[in-house]
């Protein structure tokens, strides 16, 4: 196996933070989403595995090798599993995606975790939880376009949008103000006042 520090392009003397940052950049670069329809997908995939393995190993060394690398997979920072989770979600294997996500302990839940959890809920049809998770993801990382897009769609839907609605002009939102009898009278009285100002009269009795 290659030197894990070389794979991530860092030195053994670097801080944890620096290694995490380097790891994050590499994950972004080789993320399978970027190579979805490209012949380079396989290579990126291999590279991704290499990066994940290297990061796992460094983290293990730094923790004094307390855990064997197979058993830790799902319970610390980083996205070795998130890539897999995305794959599961895309292939519709929601149960497995969710079981990996629930293995992550609270302190390691980052924006991506909430986004993926939201996607799992969304696929299940648990829309309220999906919305809450997308919201948390977006709050934790407001610059991320992916999270923002998911949240935007949910917000549009919350406002009552429906695809293919042939008559959206009939606003059926109970909170929306419609034209009631009261509004009509008010309008008439206003018009009357205006007329009177100009010397005319609309409603002769008032």
């Amino acid at each position: 196996m290659k030197d894990p520090y070389k794979v991530l392009g860092v030195s053994p003397n670097d801080s944890d933070e620096k290694i995490k940052a380097a790891y994050k950049d590499l994950v972004k670069k080789y993320h399978p989403d970027n190579y979805a329809a490209s012949p380079l997908g396989d290579i990126a995939d291999e590279k991704m595995q290499e990066i994940n393995a290297a990061f796992d190993e460094i983290m293990n060394i730094r923790r004094g090798g307390a855990h064997a690398s197979e058993t830790t997979g799902s319970s610390y920072y980083g996205a070795p599993d998130y890539v897999q989770v995305r794959k599961y979600i895309q292939s519709g294997d929601i149960t497995r995606a969710d079981s990996i996500l629930s293995g992550v302990s609270n302190e390691y839940k980052n924006a991506e975790w909430y986004f993926l959890k939201g996607s799992v809920c969304y696929t299940r049809g648990w829309l309220n939880e999906a919305f809450e998770n997308f919201q948390t993801a977006s709050n934790m990382d407001p610059s991320n376009q992916e999270y923002a897009a998911a949240l935007n769609q949910m917000n549009r839907n919350r406002g009552g949008y429906m695809n293919g609605n042939p008559n959206p002009q009939y606003n059926t939102n109970p909170n929306a103000a419609g034209c009631t009898g009261c509004d009509v009278c008010q309008g008439l009285i206003c018009a009357d006042c205006c007329c009177e100002c100009m010397g005319g009269d609309l409603i002769s009795c008032c």
Binding site: R156, R158, G159, G160, M162, N163, G164, P166, N167
Partner: peptide, 29 residues
Amino acid sequence: NLTMAELAENYVKLDQKHFKPINDNIVYL
């Protein structure tokens, strides 16, 4: 609203050959 939006997403994909206006009325209004 969240539910109805997802409902509509699936509704538009259904291959309705007859009675669509009536079903539209039920689903959207």
